[in-house]
Nucleic acid binder design. Structure first.
Lengths: 227, 227, 227, 227
DNA sequence: GATGAATGAGGTTTCATTCAT
DNA sequence: GATGAATGAAACCTCATTCAT
């Protein structure tokens, strides 16, 4: 949880609007071409700065990418955190969660595409490990805590493992994010459901997913056998 | 469902053992370095053939990759198909499914890494669409059919949409595959659960996931409210 | 004494005339501009090959440089070795040595300039150490052995340390080489002697240096006090 | 002997301690990385001044380097000059010389590394010529004068050429300096002598070198034949 | 006097693909 | 069928120097 920074001091010094503009332009490039095919000379040109200055801000292409990624992740995490902090019951929270995920995926699809990118990284163990930690620790802890609380309150089935169930939940949400934003997973959604997710009836997706999760979280194996 | 082939006739003519050897070596390279960083000159050298011959077999690096991917996918699909064809009830099938996924992920992690790779592809729309179709059509149809059947038999809740539930199911299984095989998702599993999936108690994962899916598939929203 | 090679197999495969041509062109570039300012794109262009092929022959600029350096050193070493292997007395050998050094410095000044280059390398410890070993081990051993032999024969003063005296001898010869070939040391020679070494009376330089070395090697401190 | 200055007036105006600090830091960078790899932006940062101010002091990187070099050379020259001005006989002076060289090389190795650096400069003819003149004229003249005087006094052999013998003497001392300070020449010393010069018995080196020079300077070819 | 943001040419290295043999 | 030498565009990154403030 080191919260390292991956930019140089010079980047911190410039004003926020330029900072954001630069990051958005970089995110555009990374999100549309992928890490390897993205070209930092083009990013610099599009941002209206020299490549030399770019390297005054970020030591490597890698650092620029990571900074973009965190920039995107922070935004979503803030929303999720607020939801999970509320006094609502788990299922209410879950519904809010799904709705937020959908909305965010549509309005910030580029960020999700960056996140999807690192999931495919090969052989970059140390950097990858750090990124995972930075990103997933926050998210997992808010899920796990909430579920553990619900368990204590008797709001969910008593035979669930909070960590694994948090993991399953996040998996379902993550795949939904990918379906909204990434070429392959969008096509995949279409093959399974027969509709393009961007023209789909969101309410149906939401209600089915919520209903899926609701039952999964609520009914214990014991109770199930009695039915 | 064009079932196009992405290799030249010359590749078909060589005997199966050389064919498989070549593909396995290519898969090694793609799986360990990712598509962009993989080097087909190195693949040729490792496979003991000249780069010239490589291009007699595959028109482009892309085609080689796709052929590798299909080679890997076919294997898993065959197992899944057999499971889903059986007379077992859905939950029994599901358990077999999960167990097969776990086993396969461990023994053929490289194939999953290739599959993971295409999920991150950016901007290759036409080719991507074809790949999705080839791969996901088969898998989705066996899931959907099975669930639809179970629905007709009254084995599952009556308010589920077979296609969406098949999709959710496949998402959970896919993410599990990634956790077993891909750097990022392995770390992510560790953050959520606290254990390394490769040293984890598989039975616990399986039973919790099965139990999660079981309740999700079985208890309708209507019944839930009564409880 | 590992005798490592710093070129790839592909370089070995090409015929000697092309090999030598390439090396000579590279040596020209390195000798005239120094390692850092030398441009391997220019070397490739001058040699009439593509930069890609250049990298099929040498993995790095560094490796190309080292191969050039060894190419040059081997030539001189062969001559020196022959001289030192003869049955002549040490002083006769020394005179031959000096004459060979002078002649070689004039005809192969570029090689000496490369050798001079590595003497100025900063902070490249591991590579530097290897280069030193490759180059100096050969040269030092032929000097040391010869002097030790002369010592055993009573041809030189009995209070000399063969290794240190070999070292002093080589220092004098090395500096003479530099005077013939390197800008700075040529100017320096002029400042000291008043003449440009390339227009100087070689016989005078040779006789004075030989005489300097002769007395240094012959008269012991003991004998000196008696005079 | 133009004694040009290679810094701007602004540099003269700052107080000596800042002047020296700046030069020492620049010398550190040049000595550890070499001229080409040294980075004057880093020098400025390490010295705690802005790069803009750096360029108010020195017009180019080159000028900074030359100023550093002279700064270092002056110090040694002062010591040498004092020794050579004394009334001692040549051999006594020579011993003092060697001892001073050893001590200075150890305490001011960075300066010698700068001096070594210019010996490897390629293709900078005009500037190089000036540097040589600045540095070597002083040193050569004190050696030559002293030797000529000794020759007049009959303290040294009558068949020596004062300029060439001064040159040989300086060569031996210069190579010793390099052995103490520069990576390559340190390794080279080790190969020849079998010991690391920084852990060596200085007295042995000194006595052998002195003895080498003593005989070289004292016994004429004529006398040698009689022995 | 002092700052430091900004520049951009230039160099090393990679690798998919071609083609003459 | 088989070879592998050859290509060359393209990408990352460095750093001396300028100049507006």
């Amino acid at each position: 949880m080191t919260q390292k920074k991956f930019y140089k001091d010079a980047f911190e010094r410039i004003d926020d609007s330029r900072k954001n503009k630069l990051l958005e332009i970089a995110i555009d490039e990374f999100a549309s071409k992928g890490y390897k095919n993205a070209n930092i000379n083009i990013i610099a040109k599009n941002a209206g700065i020299s490549i030399g200055l770019m390297y005054k801000y970020f030591a490597t292409k890698d650092d620029l990418f990571i900074t973009c990624l965190k920039h995107g992740m922070d935004l979503l995490d803030k929303s999720l955190y607020e939801i999970m902090q509320s006094d609502d019951k788990l299922l209410v929270k879950t519904e809010k969660l799904i709705r937020t995920i959908c909305a965010h995926s549509k309005s910030h699809s580029k960020y999700i595409r960056l996140y999807n990118e690192i999931g495919a990284e090969k052989g970059a163990s140390e950097r990858t490990r750090m990124m995972v930690e930075e990103i997933e620790t926050k998210r997992s802890s808010i899920y796990i805590t909430t579920i553990a609380q619900a368990l204590a309150n008797g709001d969910v089935r008593d035979d669930l493992d909070p960590r694994l169930f948090a993991y399953f939940l996040d998996n379902l949400l993550t795949m939904l994010q990918f379906a909204y934003t990434c070429d392959y997973y969008r096509e995949r959604f279409m093959i399974f459901t027969g509709v393009d997710i961007n023209e789909a009836d969101d309410e149906k997706i939401i209600s089915q997913l919520l209903s899926f999760i609701e039952s999964a979280f609520t009914v214990s194996h014991e109770e199930l056998k009695k039915l």
